[in-house]
Amino acid sequence: MTKTINDVYMQLYKRFKEADEPQPSLAARELTAYACKADKAHTAEWGHVYLDDATVDFAHLLCDRCLDGEPLAYILGEWDFCGLTFQVDRSVLIPRADTERLCELVVERARQKVSPRILDLCCGSGCIGIAAAHMVEDARVAAVDNSDGALRISRENARRLGVQRRYLALKADVRFRPPNGMGQFDIIVSNPPYVTRAEMHGLDKSVYQYEPHEALFGGEDGLDFYRSICAKWSSLLAPDGVMLFECGYRQATQVAAIMEENRFAGIGIAEDLSGVQRIVYGYNANLEPDAV
């Protein structure tokens, strides 16, 4: 029997629902649109478009992969963050809603400056720095990662989102001192690897088997990158500059203590959009600032 796009959507929705997928409607809609080359913004038309058997089979094959644990974002090759669509592959972590409040704080601070300079450390897909450059038209962003794959993806995302002239991606390892000649930045932001050794073994299959471990593992206690960045990269912070971190849901006070040990001023903790204390910030000790 010939099936419409909507028929396929309902079939995938039922499969996801029976498998206890947290967001069965979202997963079914995204996979259906991708497999059927359909516009997910015009689902009302899906009931009138008929498909060949190969397309139907392809949609179910993609569903099989998703139900087997492969992240939907990697199947689609893209994911949304702060209202923008970012290209992703298995060389970068999938952008998550947990990080959107961190990006909002970066944007709020950047808008207080003229031609602000932003440094995004452990940039991955580039979602934080690129979203900030997209929302603050005079911002200039330098992005750092130690992964060639991540740098490739971040540069492509900057190009696709039209900010490539104000976005520079550099290869460097934040566990060592920064390259010479980088200058100073009004904002340094980082969502570094912060999963502990014990937590690595308890990660969901879709994370542990598919997302890059080097972008997840933060050392025995998950805090190695915070120590290095605070000790070795804070010299790049402008006199009234702010450094902001994302951290694990139980790490905020520990990250704040690391910033205190490294003589940051005005240290504070903020919640993400789900009310979790996931953001830690501090200012250059040379100038006592207003809070974020």
Rank of each mutant, 00 (worst) to 15 (best):
I5G: 00
N6K: 10
Q11L: 10
F16A: 09
F16V: 01
Q23W: 10
Q23V: 12
A27D: 09
A28I: 08
D53E: 12
H60P: 03
H60A: 14
G69A: 04
P71H: 06
L72P: 03
L72I: 13
S91K: 08
R96E: 04
E100D: 06
V107K: 00
R117C: 06
L119R: 06
C122T: 02
S125L: 01
G129C: 01
I130L: 04
A142Q: 14
D148W: 15
L151G: 04
N157Y: 04
L161I: 02
R166T: 02
A172K: 10
D173S: 08
R175H: 12
F176W: 07
R177G: 14
G181Q: 14
Q184F: 14
F185W: 01
S190N: 03
S190G: 07
P193N: 10
Y208K: 12
Q209F: 13
P212Y: 01
G219A: 04
E220P: 03
D221K: 06
D224W: 07
F225A: 02
R227C: 02
S228F: 00
L236F: 07
A238G: 06
V242W: 07
V242C: 11
M243N: 00
L244Q: 03
E246M: 05
Y249C: 09
R250C: 05
V255M: 05
A257F: 02
I258K: 05
A265F: 14
G268I: 02
G268Q: 11
G275R: 08
A285L: 03
L287V: 14
D290P: 06
